Simulated assay, not measured.
Amino acid sequence: MKINCLIIDDEPAAQSILKIFIEKIDFLSLVAICNNAVEALSELKSNSEINLLFLDINMPKISGLSFYKSLQNPPFVIFTTAYPEYAVDGFNVNAADYLLKPFSFDRFFTSINKVVDKLNVKTTLTTSEESIIIKVDKRLHKVTISSIFFIEAFGDYVKIYLENEFLLTNNRLKNILTLLPNKMFVQVHKSYATNLRKVTIIEGNQILINQYKIPIGLKYKSEFLNKFNNE
């Protein structure tokens, strides 16, 4: 998963700090740095894959707030400014967060967590074939897709089973499945989905993966067997 970011700020020092912080988080990707709203608009028009703006509110000619309000279907935004009185205005346009300069990396990371939460709710997180980001409590875990054995719905949570452990995340099974390649993962029961590449034994209406026995629901069996036989 990558969250593609755009910095829009007229202060070189602020640009530098944001760039350093973004580089510390491996699922953030800095697309460009813009000095003003005009440059930013041009960048947004040429790149539809930008997910997140770090937008300074107090900029010359066009303020960050005015610029953001003018956008059609804008990306998520984290406003940055040295002026706390702008905070209310920022949240009135549904900002993911508001960073008051100067801010620490811990505070920056908290803002990123809020963006990940919003992306998860909308189930629009993009993924690569290599890894996804899973939130467990207040931490973000980068999980290699091929290391996932199976997934289990567990009340309001989902257990993601790896070789010697599982991660418990507050999410829904169908949301997690949207983050995974459907050629590799298939739902086999209302509460289970498996990595086809980890399945070695099918015994009646059960799948054996390591020490685990996973039930196969009748309504899912045909699709599972079809994908398993073509894997």
Score class of each variant (00 low, 15 high):
residue 19 K to M: 13
residue 170 N to C: 11
residue 49 E to D: 14
residue 170 N to V: 11
residue 175 N to K: 14
residue 200 T to F: 08
residue 62 I to M: 09
residue 190 K to F: 02
residue 53 L to G: 03
residue 156 D to P: 06
residue 68 Y to W: 07
residue 101 K to H: 11
residue 50 I to W: 01
residue 207 I to S: 04
residue 116 V to K: 05
residue 157 Y to F: 15
residue 147 S to C: 10
residue 198 K to M: 12
residue 151 I to T: 03
residue 39 E to V: 14
residue 208 L to D: 04
residue 140 L to H: 10
residue 146 S to E: 15
residue 26 D to L: 07
residue 98 Y to F: 15
residue 150 F to T: 02
residue 214 I to D: 00
residue 46 S to W: 09
residue 107 R to Q: 10
residue 99 L to E: 00
residue 52 L to N: 00
residue 116 V to E: 03
residue 201 I to E: 07
residue 83 Y to S: 10
residue 113 N to C: 09
residue 98 Y to G: 00
residue 180 L to M: 08
residue 49 E to A: 04
residue 9 D to S: 06
residue 231 E to L: 15
residue 31 V to Q: 11
residue 118 K to P: 01
residue 193 A to I: 10
residue 9 D to M: 04
residue 214 I to S: 03
residue 131 S to V: 07
residue 68 Y to F: 10
residue 32 A to L: 13
residue 67 F to R: 07
residue 230 N to W: 12
residue 56 D to H: 03
residue 114 K to N: 09
residue 210 N to G: 01
residue 177 L to S: 08
residue 117 D to M: 06
residue 143 V to S: 01
residue 53 L to E: 06
residue 145 I to V: 14
residue 150 F to C: 02
residue 38 V to K: 09
residue 19 K to I: 11
residue 96 A to R: 04
residue 11 E to I: 13
residue 57 I to E: 06
residue 104 S to D: 14
residue 225 L to S: 13
residue 185 F to W: 08
residue 229 N to I: 09
residue 70 S to Y: 02
residue 216 I to T: 07
residue 94 N to W: 05
residue 7 I to T: 03
residue 146 S to N: 14
residue 203 E to R: 12
residue 227 K to H: 11
residue 117 D to Y: 01
residue 219 K to E: 14
residue 122 K to L: 05
residue 83 Y to A: 07
residue 91 F to Y: 13
residue 184 M to N: 15
residue 220 Y to T: 06
residue 130 E to P: 06
residue 164 N to I: 09
residue 180 L to I: 11
residue 169 T to R: 08
residue 145 I to M: 02
residue 205 N to H: 12
residue 156 D to M: 07
residue 220 Y to A: 02
residue 184 M to L: 15
residue 171 N to D: 10
residue 187 Q to A: 11
residue 160 I to T: 08
residue 124 T to S: 04
residue 87 A to T: 12
residue 20 I to S: 15
residue 56 D to Y: 04
residue 37 A to N: 02
residue 9 D to F: 00
residue 123 T to E: 01
residue 61 K to S: 08
residue 36 N to Y: 05
residue 151 I to P: 00
residue 118 K to I: 01
residue 106 D to K: 12
residue 42 S to H: 14
residue 127 T to V: 01
residue 25 I to R: 01
residue 103 F to S: 04
residue 216 I to V: 11
residue 200 T to C: 05
residue 121 V to G: 07
residue 95 A to Q: 06
residue 153 A to D: 03
residue 67 F to G: 01
residue 139 R to G: 06
residue 105 F to P: 10
residue 6 L to H: 05
residue 33 I to T: 14
residue 152 E to K: 15
residue 195 N to M: 04
residue 160 I to F: 02
residue 146 S to M: 09
residue 164 N to F: 08
residue 1 M to Q: 02
residue 35 N to K: 10
residue 64 G to F: 03
residue 16 S to N: 15
residue 126 T to A: 04
residue 75 P to A: 00
residue 82 A to T: 09
residue 7 I to W: 04
residue 134 I to H: 00
residue 8 I to R: 00
residue 183 K to M: 11
residue 12 P to A: 11
residue 186 V to D: 07
residue 76 F to D: 08
residue 170 N to Q: 12
residue 45 K to W: 00
residue 99 L to T: 14
residue 98 Y to S: 00
residue 114 K to A: 04
residue 120 N to T: 01
residue 194 T to L: 11
residue 101 K to Q: 09
residue 99 L to I: 10
residue 88 V to F: 07
residue 188 V to M: 09
residue 127 T to G: 01
residue 182 N to W: 06
